[in-house]
């Protein structure tokens, strides 16, 4: 019991330190500001579009969360907010202090993941205002709102775990960001390769299920498909596992 408390306290310390580091860098505020700007612009665009006569087949929140444009933003944002995590500690040497204290690599990775995931969720909190705005004017399907946010959270977990893994691979933040960016391009671009494959190939079906655009559109409609949830959670778990292993292996270099 006492051991568990000490374990959790060390984890909390790692998360807290990571959040202090995040919010003391200008990058966090630049990303936040850009995010707000883009979200606002997108929301008003959708609002304008749906206000035209004959365009009422879709709810505004569904268009907002299921909209494909917005997620392209994460190709840039996810690498930006994760590149520092491990690469910077390697460069400055603080990783040596951290890994010679009685914490495990797993604790370090979970702590860093939790901190950056909290920041990711913080990016999304202003969108709650939009939900309230819509609520004041129209009926809202709360189930769809909940599933949209679930989708946002699951995608975020996947994106930042991939970024975290990339950050364990490099000593330079730029290289970490490039690796993460490449990984995300592959993840995002997978469905585009569908047309290149023969329709009979089993791979085509696999890719259909891995289609992030389709998945997000479904979440926005209020559909929570467990296959999607499992897909995102298992990839997140895989990247966190790989990050831990990479941190352990980093000692051998």
């Amino acid at each position: 019991m006492a051991a568990l408390i000490i374990w959790l306290r060390a984890l909390a310390a790692i998360i807290r330190r990571e959040l202090i580091a995040t919010f003391s860098s200008p990058l966090a505020y630049i990303v936040l500001a850009a995010f707000l700007l883009l979200q606002g612009a997108l929301f008003s665009l959708i609002l304008g579009y749906l206000s035209q006569p004959g365009q009422s087949s879709m709810s505004i929140l569904q268009a907002f969360f299921g909209g494909t444009i917005f997620f392209w933003f994460f190709l840039v944002v996810a690498p930006l907010i994760t590149m520092r995590l491990v690469a910077e500690e390697r460069r400055s040497g603080t990783i040596e202090v951290l890994l010679t204290s009685p914490v495990t690599e797993t604790q370090v990775i979970i702590g860093k993941f939790a901190a950056v995931f909290i920041f990711y969720l913080a990016l999304w909190t202003p969108t709650l205002v939009y939900v309230l705005m819509v609520k004041s004017q129209a009926a809202i399907d709360w189930g769809a709102v909940a599933s949209s946010y679930l989708g946002v959270a699951l995608f975020g977990a996947l994106f930042v775990s991939l970024g975290l893994f990339a950050s364990t691979l490099a000593r330079s933040q730029i290289i970490a960001a490039v690796i993460a960016f490449t990984g995300l391009i592959i993840l995002f671009g997978l469905p585009l390769t569908r047309g290149l494959l023969l329709s009979s190939s089993g791979l085509g079906a696999v890719i259909d299920h891995a289609d992030l655009w389709q998945q997000m559109a479904d979440y926005a409609k209020g559909i929570v498909d467990t296959r999607y949830v499992v897909y995102e959670l298992s990839l997140t778990g895989l990247f966190l596992f790989l990050s831990t292993k990479s941190l352990e292996l980093g000692k051998w270099r």
Binding site: R9, A10, A13, S92, T94, E96, V97, L98, S101
Partner: peptide
């Protein structure tokens, strides 16, 4: 190696928890 963005007491508190 230290974390430049932390204050001294924040850092020592961090080390205490981690250790």
């Amino acid at each position: 190696p230290l974390y430049p963005e932390l204050r001294v007491d924040e850092y020592l508190r961090f080390r205490a928890d981690v250790e």
